[in-house]
Amino acid sequence: MSARILCLGLVLVFAASYAMAQVGGEKRRSGYQDMGEALQKMQDDDTANPGMLFVQLGGQLWAKPAGAENKSCADCHGAAANSMKGVATRYPAIPHGADRPVDLEGRINLCRTENQKAERLPPENRDLLALEAYVAHQSRGMPIAPPYGPLLDAFRAQGEGIYRRRQGQLNLSCAICHDDNAGKKLAGIAIPEAHPTGYPIYRLEWQTLGSLKRRLRNCLVGIRAEAWPLDAPEYVALELYLMERAKGLPLETPAVRP
């Protein structure tokens, strides 16, 4: 009898918590919600979040003159807390006069080559990740708000096509795991919904900060597909589609993930 009451109680508690989780109709889950409490605390505590070291470094680089023009980011953009607020929620985007979208790291490199007359920073370069983390951190807590337009929409559609196409020796698509089987366990670990809410992220597996592109390449390697070259437009197209899927979810940069 008492077991039956306990059961009923559990069902009620479950139903109530489920109903609360549905408040606002938000069913999408950030990877944050699926990690353990210890990691959530690590991300939330700026003194424990290793990504904050990169944000700090990014803040220093923001004010440091670079390139033949000897200009710093701050010389043009002023205080990032004002000028960069919300910017990361709108990337990838198409720069003025350009014919293809760039992601945030692409935008930072454009500023370097065009305005600072400095060298491009290579992918996964520490300073590039630090600057990107610093800029994106200014939007922490703000909802992802992708821009639209015919050209951008075309690239986004290309990204969705890539997301849904099977590829690699294992013949899997992004959608098979991250839409159809999200939440189920792959080798004992819950498959996330693949919302890029916290990039660049500090991944414990990497023991460093890394870009969304690096994460996408991890998945490509996993399904034994040929990874595109690092400067390939396919990554930006995929990023555009992923940001659309994650539209409205709050940005967490710098996120911590296992």
């Binding site: 590829q167 690699g168 020796q169 294992l170 013949n171 490509l220 597909a225 040929e226």
Partner: peptide, 24 residues
């Protein structure tokens, strides 16, 4: 089916070079 074909090389797209033409 989402289960990979373990002994087939045809009908696959963008297979990594290291695995091209090889069965799982």
């Amino acid at each position: 089916t989402i289960m990979p074909a373990y002994y087939r090389t045809g009908g696959l797209q963008r297979v990594a070079r290291a695995f091209e033409g090889k069965t799982i």
